[in-house]
């Protein structure tokens, strides 16, 4: 069976955005699909070692915190580690990192840093492409 490919662009940096990205990514990886995520603009928060420990809820939605605990939803760093364990490829956007003055060291280990073409090369024959 040939593996399907899933290409994801993560361009938003809130807690809800992080769950959308990592839930789809881990579910796809667990279904034997090859996954790459391109983190750009605020999406870089999701792989920022410090920022991703305390991602913000959308304004006015803070009351959902209780729902997350009650539903036993895993914390983002845990989902991220799981995604990496299943070989999900993380690509950090070089241009955004330059704009924000961030070095590769600010991010979780194992990321690749590249430009739009690095992602497009992976995405060009992807079976599913998603943007969050």
């Amino acid at each position: 069976m040939t593996n399907k490919k899933v290409a994801i662009i993560a361009s938003n940096g809130g807690l809800f955005d992080a769950y959308k990205v990592f839930n789809i990514a881990t579910a796809a990886a667990a279904t034997d699909q090859e996954v790459a995520i391109f983190f750009t603009f605020e999406g870089l928060n999701l792989i920022n070692k410090e920022a991703n420990q305390q991602l913000a809820m959308p304004e006015g939605k803070e009351h959902f915190a209780e729902g997350f605990t009650k539903a036993n939803v895993p914390p983002i760093p845990e989902l991220l580690a799981m995604a990496q364990e299943m070989d999900v490829k993380f690509i950090g956007c070089q241009m955004t990192m330059d704009v924000m003055g961030l070095e590769k060291e600010a991010f979780v280990d194992g990321i690749e840093v590249g430009g739009a073409v690095t992602f497009l090369e992976f995405a060009k024959d992807a079976d599913v492409t998603l943007t969050f």
Binding site: N23, T26, A27, T31, A71, M86
Partner: peptide
């Protein structure tokens, strides 16, 4: 466990 953990654990 909440989604997607049951799938990840099954895999």
């Amino acid at each position: 466990l909440a989604c997607p953990m049951p799938i990840v654990k099954t895999k």
